[in-house]
């Protein structure tokens, strides 16, 4: 009792009590779901009470590595996940290049206008990106096909959206279209931190424009690039599902299904909660390991952590 009274007299503890409802919210929405992990140890059937269903131990986990059908699917999904993540990492240099090119534009008003306009796509939802893709590429009403048909270069138009060819590349393209301007902002900020005296000195030494970019600007931006690169290692498996979900159709499903979408399709569409939970669990655990690995890399190379 004395301890409790002492605690209550502490200002800091009263402050804690004031925000306790908020901390409970965090617990309820972010920690409580962990309880759902036990579904992976049962053979759960939707609509029944969990504990009336069969306890199967690690069978759902074993299935991922032994069941022929599951293995084939998981390999395909992992190929998509890592493939698209890898393409994303390779093209993560684009925002850096874009920022440099933009900074080379000396007409201030033009530069600002471009920066404003290219950032807009970042603020629209993936559903809307899908709608725009529809408006641009659909066979009947798409702008591109209208131009092709009107100019006579194609008779019926090309069905860009349904095709399973180059799904990875088109997903990458939409991602770049949506995010390029926004991702460049961080580099534009970093550019302002580069000492302008370096450029003056280089000019006196007779350096050309490309030389200055290569020897001053690029090295100035690399630390930022490196931090983002490390973070993307931690997010290797987290492609998210929204983009792939909206663009998914019967034709491209095999090539578009990433891990998050696979879990959704298995669990929410196929009602195989237990297996989907098991896959999701494994993903969460591997993601955390990757994050710690990225953090470790950052600590040994840069001396500070990224998280």
């Amino acid at each position: 009792m004395v301890g409790a009274k002492k605690l209550l007299n502490q200002q800091g503890f009263r402050l804690f009590l004031m925000v306790l409802p908020l901390l409970i919210l965090v617990f309820v929405f972010s920690y409580l779901p962990l309880y759902g992990w036990i579904y992976s140890f049962f053979d759960y059937k939707a609509g029944r009470d969990l504990f009336s269903t069969e306890f199967v131990g690690f069978r759902n986990f074993q299935m991922m590595f032994t069941d022929h059908y599951a293995v084939t699917n998981i390999l395909r999904v992992m190929k998509n996940t890592l493939g698209m993540s890898f393409l994303g990492i390779v093209t993560s240099v684009f925002p850096l290049i874009f920022a440099i090119l933009l900074s080379e534009i000396k007409i201030l008003r033009f530069r600002k206008t471009i920066q404003t306009l290219v950032t807009i796509p970042n603020f629209i939802s993936w559903v809307l990106v899908y709608s725009i893709a529809f408006a641009m590429f659909s066979t009947s009403d798409g702008l591109i096909n209208r131009i092709l048909i009107n100019s006579g270069s194609s008779e019926e138009g090309i069905n860009f959206l349904a095709s399973s060819n180059h799904v990875w590349l088109s997903m990458l393209g939409y991602g770049i279209w949506k995010g390029l301007g926004w991702s460049a902002i961080i580099y534009i900020a970093a550019l302002t931190n580069i000492d302008s005296e370096q450029y003056e000195a280089a000019k006196i030494d007779g350096a050309g424009r490309l030389q200055m970019i290569w020897h001053i600007t690029v090295p100035g931006l690399l630390p930022t690039f490196f931090v983002l690169l490390l973070l993307s290692i931690g997010n290797l498996l987290n492609n998210g599902m929204e983009q792939y979900f909206v663009f998914q159709n019967a034709m491209n499903k095999d090539d578009i299904e990433v891990l998050d979408l696979y879990v959704y399709n298995q669990g929410m569409v196929g009602y195989d909660y237990s297996f989907a939970t098991a896959v999701g669990m494994l993903k969460s655990v591997v993601s955390v390991i990757l994050l710690f690995f990225a953090n470790f890399l950052s600590k040994i190379t840069r001396g500070e952590s990224v998280i």
Partner: peptide, 17 residues
């Protein structure tokens, strides 16, 4: 609070919750 940015239980447990 911050850990919740990097770690989540997955979508099915979230849905059940």
């Amino acid at each position: 609070v911050l850990i919740t940015m990097y770690f989540n239980a997955g979508i099915i447990p979230w849905y059940i919750n």
